[in-house]
Amino acid sequence: MNKYKWGVIGTGKIAHTFATALMNCENAELCASASRTEEKAKRFAEEFGFLKYYGSYREFAEKSDAEIVYIATPMASHFDDAWLCLENGKNVLCEKSLALNTAQTEKLIAFAKEKGLFFMEAMWMKCRPVYRKMKEWIASGLIGDIEYIKADFSNFIPYDENDRLFRADCGGGCLLDLGIYPITLTHDLLGVPDDITSSAHIMHGIDMSNSILFRYKNGAFSSMDNGFEIQLRNNAIISGTKGFITLGNWFHCTEEGILFDRNGKEIERFVRKDDINGYEYEIAELHSCLDVGLKESPLVPHSDTIAVMKLMDECRAQWGMKYPNE
Results as ranks from 00 to 15, higher is better:
Gly278Ile: 08
Asn277Asp: 05
Gly293Tyr: 13
Ile183Asp: 01
Ile183Trp: 04
Ser211Ala: 05
Pro298Lys: 13
Cys170His: 14
Asn277Tyr: 08
Glu280Asp: 14
Asp195Ile: 05
Leu259His: 08
Ala200Tyr: 01
His287Cys: 15
Glu229Met: 04
Ala236Ile: 03
Trp250Asn: 14
Ile258Phe: 07
Leu247Ala: 13
Thr197Asp: 04
His252Ala: 12
Glu255Arg: 07
Leu290Ser: 13
Val300Gly: 07
Tyr281Asn: 05
Pro158Ala: 15
Leu290Lys: 15
Ser223Gln: 14
Ile238Arg: 07
Leu189Asp: 04
Lys273Ser: 08
Leu290Ile: 14
Tyr279Glu: 06
Glu229Ser: 06
Phe260Cys: 08
Gly278Asn: 11
Leu294Ser: 03
Gly278Leu: 06
Gly205Ile: 10
Leu290Cys: 13
Gly171Thr: 12
Ile245Trp: 00
Arg233Asn: 12
Arg233Leu: 10
Glu280Ala: 10
Ile230His: 14
Thr241Cys: 07
Tyr216Glu: 02
Ala220Phe: 09
Asn162Gln: 10
Lys265Met: 09
Tyr281Leu: 11
Asp177Trp: 06
Tyr216Ser: 04
Asn226Lys: 03
Asp274Ser: 11
His201Met: 01
Ser223Tyr: 06
Leu299Cys: 07
Asp261Gln: 04
Phe244Trp: 13
Thr186Pro: 00
Phe251Val: 04
His201Ser: 09
Leu178Tyr: 09
Asp274Ala: 14
Ala284Phe: 10
His252Pro: 05
His201Tyr: 02
Pro298Ile: 13
Asn249Val: 06
Tyr216Met: 05
Leu185Ser: 00
Glu282His: 12
Ile183Val: 15
Glu229Tyr: 00
Ala220Pro: 09
Asp207Trp: 00
Cys289Asn: 09
Tyr159His: 10
Val300Trp: 02
Phe270Asp: 09
Ile202Tyr: 01
Asn235Thr: 09
Arg262Lys: 15
Asp160Cys: 08
Leu189Trp: 02
Gly191Ile: 00
Gly173Lys: 08
Asp163Met: 14
Ala200Ser: 04
Met208Tyr: 08
Lys217Met: 09
Met208Ala: 03
Asn249Gly: 08
Cys253Glu: 15
Lys217Trp: 06
Ser222Arg: 01
Ile267Ala: 05
Ala284Glu: 14
Ile238Ala: 05
Pro298Val: 08
Thr197Ala: 04
His204Phe: 08
Val192Ser: 03
Thr184Cys: 12
Asp291Phe: 09
Ile237Asp: 04
Lys265Leu: 11
Thr246Lys: 05
Glu161Asn: 15
Ile258Gln: 11
Val192Trp: 02
Ile245Pro: 00
Tyr216Lys: 07
Ile196Thr: 00
Thr186Gly: 02
Lys265Glu: 15
Ile212Cys: 01
Asp304Arg: 15
Phe221Gln: 00
His204Met: 12
Ile230Leu: 12
Lys295Gln: 14
Leu165Cys: 02
Glu255Ile: 10
Leu294Cys: 03
His252Phe: 10
Ile276Arg: 09
Leu178Met: 10
Ile206His: 07
Ile183Gly: 01
Leu185Lys: 03
Ser198Trp: 00
